[in-house]
């Protein structure tokens, strides 16, 4: 690490205020987190469901004309039996090669942020990144008890979240760009549709 000390030796002292500020969550008027989450996700073109997750996934599969979907491992999803029930409907969890051809992805979620309509997903064994990334349509199953007010509120309560997995992703609605004449387009690289099914509501 001698290289590091040499590198750091170049860095002098800045004449700037050096006190470490205390981070506190902003004071906000109390509100119902579920309805706030729904409103905010809809504002960024996401879709929120409060119905049976099996029906939501099956309905999307039918609309997309597919009988396959990508997903986290069955036991990592917050809806036990979802994979099995879908199978009885002829809709199968896809594993192995060719995953980029599958138009539907299903994941759980580790937190929901009501103020921005965001779902947080932490990658790990049985919880891969690609089901929320490659398909045209991503469905996140979010337990309502994991809803928090804002990113700052959640992060203050879960300071270890960043280290829990090698990859953490916060998703706020479908992929979008306004690079061409500031005209909004959905689905540049990531999913064109983001559906969140509230579980345990």
């Amino acid at each position: 690490m001698s290289r590091l000390s040499e590198f750091l030796a170049r860095i002098g002292t800045a004449r700037l205020p050096s006190a470490r500020p205390e981070v506190r969550a902003p004071q906000l008027d109390a509100t119902d987190l579920v309805s706030l989450f729904i409103r905010r996700l809809e504002e960024v073109d996401g879709v929120v469901h409060r119905t049976d997750p099996v029906e939501v996934v099956a309905g999307l599969a039918r609309r997309l004309g597919t009988d396959r979907y990508l997903s986290w491992d069955p036991d990592r999803l917050p809806v036990p039996g979802l994979v099995a029930e879908l199978e009885t409907l002829g809709i199968e969890r896809h594993t192995g090669p060719g995953r980029e051809e599958v138009p539907l992805g299903v994941t759980g979620a580790d937190a929901g942020l009501a103020e921005s309509g965001t779902v947080v997903l932490i990658a790990g064994p049985g919880r891969p990144r690609h089901p929320s990334l490659l398909p045209e349509v991503h469905v996140a199953l979010l337990r309502v008890d994991l809803l928090h007010r804002s990113l700052t509120h959640w992060m203050l309560e879960h300071p270890q979240a960043l280290s829990e997995g090698s990859g953490l992703i916060m998703i706020t609605g479908p992929s979008r760009t306004a690079d061409i004449e500031q005209q909004l387009n959905l689905g540049v690289h990531g999913p064109r549709e983001v559906h969140v099914v509230l579980v345990g509501a």
């Binding site: 905010r40 921005s116 965001t118 280290s163 990859g167 953490l168 998703i171 706020t172 990531g190």
Partner: peptide
Amino acid sequence: QRLSVYTTVVTGP
């Protein structure tokens, strides 16, 4: 935006 669409955090391989 209230948050950007994707905030990606990479903590190691």
